[in-house]
């Protein structure tokens, strides 16, 4: 069957007509398959939701237990049948619970990879390459300027900065789901044993990661104790990037503003955000990893979702691989 008959875009999102379901729809639909828990992919209000058990848990934490009418767990690697369409969830390596969705019918296989990365991440299962006919890829960092450096070294730079400025607080902006826990876990692996302070918005998600067996060490709420004046000196505080624009950030004296993101590769970007210590650390693939992954899947066609589509489409053309942008709306990349 033609790939575009198996999956194509609708205003609500990516739709499978024979299976009658959407993948990561941006509007409420009857049946949604969700790749991962980030808010632009996992939205509340669908009737039936099929996803990994961890993504379902995360949605319940973020939106409340009634985020949908009916939940269905997709066990990793097991093939399910939806109206004659075979569905398999495979790890995507993006955040805890994140999956690629393999959609198959009559010998045509499409992999909707969602957001993914290829680097080692101690907080989630690694990406699995699934051979396919059509590979649907994100393009958040799809420009040759984005080459993420070694992640361990970025964390080591943060630890080194804390050592050099023991009187200052290091305030790290990190996305509340995935990035924050990865930064904390890697700090622990890098030997930082002191309590880490977290913004209130991250508490539940951090608790959930811990419940899934990911040891984050001692976490404390970043609230002010009036009796203890210098409580944040030399400490690492992790908060969502948006909190830096907020009154919340004012409680830390002379803070070193850090931001953990792939965008930090661009100096003027870091400068505009007022970041003093940029940490180039991403949950998305960099340019080389996007290109390598396309080759590894052996696909004959690439569909590009959100990000810098034109550059990735251009690269595919140069490689002789058919490619087109999907022009999906409603996905963000700025908050990475």
């Amino acid at each position: 069957m033609r790939a575009s008959d198996l999956l194509h875009t609708r205003p609500e999102g990516l739709y499978c007509p024979p299976g009658d379901f959407f993948i990561d729809p941006v509007q409420p639909v009857e049946r949604a398959l969700i790749t991962h828990g980030h808010a632009d992919h996992a939205r509340p209000g669908h009737t039936k939701v099929l996803s990994s058990d961890q993504t379902l848990d995360i949605m319940a934490i973020r939106y409340g237990e009634d985020f949908c009418v009916e939940r269905q767990i997709a066990p990793l690697g097991e093939t399910l049948d939806l109206n004659g369409v075979q569905i398999t969830f495979r790890p995507a390596g993006h955040v805890l619970g994140s999956c690629q969705i393999v959609v198959e019918k009559d010998g045509t296989r499409i992999v909707a990879s969602g957001d993914y990365k290829r680097r080692q991440d101690p907080t989630c299962l690694p990406f699995e390459v699934v051979p396919c006919d059509v590979f649907i890829t994100e393009a958040t960092f799809a420009l040759p300027v984005f080459r993420h450096p070694d992640t361990t070294e970025e964390i080591a730079r943060l630890i080194e900065s804390v050592r050099r400025f023991p009187e200052r607080a290091h305030v790290v902006g990190a996305y509340a789901l995935g990035k924050a826990q990865r930064v904390i876990k890697m700090l622990r692996d890098g030997g930082h044993d002191a309590p880490i302070y977290i913004h209130g918005a991250m508490q539940k998600l951090c608790d959930y990661y811990v419940s899934q067996g990911i040891d984050l060490g001692e976490l404390r709420p970043a609230t002010i104790d009036r009796k203890q004046k210098d409580q944040f000196a030399g400490a690492i505080i992790v908060g969502p990037p948006s909190a830096f624009a907020d009154r919340w950030a004012r409680r830390f004296p002379d803070p070193v503003a850090c931001f953990a993101s792939g965008w930090m590769r661009i100096r003027q970007r870091a400068r505009q955000r007022g970041v003093e210590l940029p940490l180039i650390l991403s949950d998305h693939s960099d340019w080389d990893e996007l290109c390598e992954t396309i080759h590894e899947t052996g696909c004959s066609e690439v569909w590009v979702t959100h990000g810098r589509e034109e550059a990735l489409v251009r690269w595919c053309e140069l490689q002789g691989i058919k490619a087109r942008p999907l022009h999906l709306v409603g996905y963000e990349d700025e908050n990475e």
Partner: peptide, 18 residues
């Protein structure tokens, strides 16, 4: 691809260095 990169970064030295 270089053109896309330069448009995005906006600074020739930085683009080439990356």
């Amino acid at each position: 691809l270089f053109g896309y990169s330069y448009d995005y970064v906006g600074d020739l030295a930085e683009t080439v260095s990356l």
